Simulated scan of single mutants.
Amino acid sequence: MPPATPDAALTSATASPQQAAPDAQGGVVLAPVAETPPKRPRAPARERTIGTKVAGQPAFVLHSYPYKETSLIIDLFTRDFGRVALIAKGAKRPHSQLRGVLQTFQPLSSSWVGKSELRTLTDAEWVGGMLPLEKTALLCGFYLNELLVKLLARDDAHPALFDHYVSTLNQLAHNEPATIVLRKFERALLKETGVAADLGRCTSTRAPVQADVTYVVDPERGPRPERASDPWPRVAGKTLLDMEREDYQDAATQSQSKQLMRFLVAHHLNGAPLNTRQILVDLSQL
C-alpha cells in the first residue's frame, strides 16, 4: 500500500468525524457523524429582561403627563431598573383598568415591553400596604419625587435607594418629623448617585472632623476648615459628625443641615429649580 501523501494526511485530519456502520452485505462503511453546534452563552438574567419584557416589577409613579387623547406617559421609579419611561395606552379612558391605579405614592406591581427608551406599559396592579400621604406630608412626597426625576438618570438601578424611598414615604405617612426624614433621604440620594463626600473627614488634611471646629463643605470634595472669603454655608463640626451618623436630634444640627443640604442639592441640580421646595420653604417645613 503506498504511503499517504501530505495532502491526504491533511484531508484526513480535517475531515468530518465518522463512525462505523454495517452495510447491506454485512461489511462496514464509514458514515459521517453530525456535528453538535456550539452552544451560545446564556445572557445574565438582567440582560434577558431589558429591552424585551419585564413582569411584576415593584414600582412607584413619580410623574405622569398626557400623551395624545387617551394615553399617558409615566415616569416610574422601579426597584431593579431605576427610572423608566412608559406609555400607558388608553389610561385616560373612563373604563381603563389603569385609570385609578397609576397614582403617586402607591406601591405597584408593573409590567412592560419594549426596546426603546420609551417602552409600553402592559400591566400595573396596586399592591397596597401603605398609608396615603396627607397635607404637608403629601408636599414632602412630591419633593422626593422631584428630586428623583431631576437627579437620577434613566435605566440606572438603585435598589437600596428604592427601599429608602419606601421607608421615607412610610415615615412621612406616620407623621415623623419632616425636617429629619427629608435630610436623611437627601443624603442617601447624593450617596447613591456618587456625589456625596465623607462628612467625617477633612479633605485638605484627611484628618477627622473636629466637633468644635467650623467648616464649609466643598460640593465636589467635602469638608474643610472655613476661610473668611468662603461664600458657602458655615457648619459646625458637630453637625457634620451628626449627619454622618444620621443623628438629627440636636436643634442646631437640624438647622445647619437644612442649609447645607439645600446648598449641596442646588449645586448638583446645576441651577435647575425645585418647584416643591419653594412651596415647602414658604410653609417653613424645609
Score class of each variant (00 low, 15 high):
35 E>W: 12
42 R>C: 08
212 D>N: 03
187 R>A: 12
212 D>S: 07
249 Q>W: 14
75 D>H: 13
148 L>V: 08
119 R>F: 03
235 V>F: 06
280 L>N: 11
236 A>H: 10
158 H>R: 03
55 A>I: 14
264 L>D: 07
148 L>M: 08
32 P>A: 11
170 N>T: 14
172 L>C: 02
65 Y>V: 05
16 S>N: 10
119 R>L: 09
165 Y>H: 13
162 F>A: 02
133 L>Y: 03
60 F>T: 10
101 V>A: 05
86 L>A: 10
48 R>M: 14
178 A>P: 04
180 I>L: 15
93 R>F: 07
7 D>T: 07
23 D>R: 00
66 P>V: 09
72 L>D: 03
279 I>K: 09
243 M>N: 01
73 I>K: 07
11 T>C: 04
54 V>E: 06
44 P>S: 09
260 L>V: 02
4 A>K: 00
42 R>N: 09
174 H>P: 13
221 R>N: 12
203 T>W: 12
21 A>I: 05
37 P>C: 08
212 D>F: 08
264 L>K: 06
194 G>Q: 04
58 P>G: 09
248 Y>S: 06
21 A>W: 06
129 G>H: 07
152 L>I: 04
115 K>Y: 10
16 S>A: 12
174 H>Y: 11
27 G>M: 00
282 D>E: 14
276 T>V: 09
109 S>W: 07
133 L>M: 01
28 V>C: 04
79 R>G: 03
79 R>H: 12
6 P>W: 00
14 T>D: 05
283 L>T: 05
54 V>F: 06
218 D>G: 02
69 E>G: 06
128 G>T: 00
237 G>V: 02
269 L>I: 02
155 D>L: 04
209 V>G: 07
247 D>Q: 05
25 Q>V: 07
201 R>Q: 15
111 S>T: 03
240 L>K: 00
145 N>H: 03
284 S>Y: 14
151 L>S: 12
136 T>Y: 08
182 L>T: 01
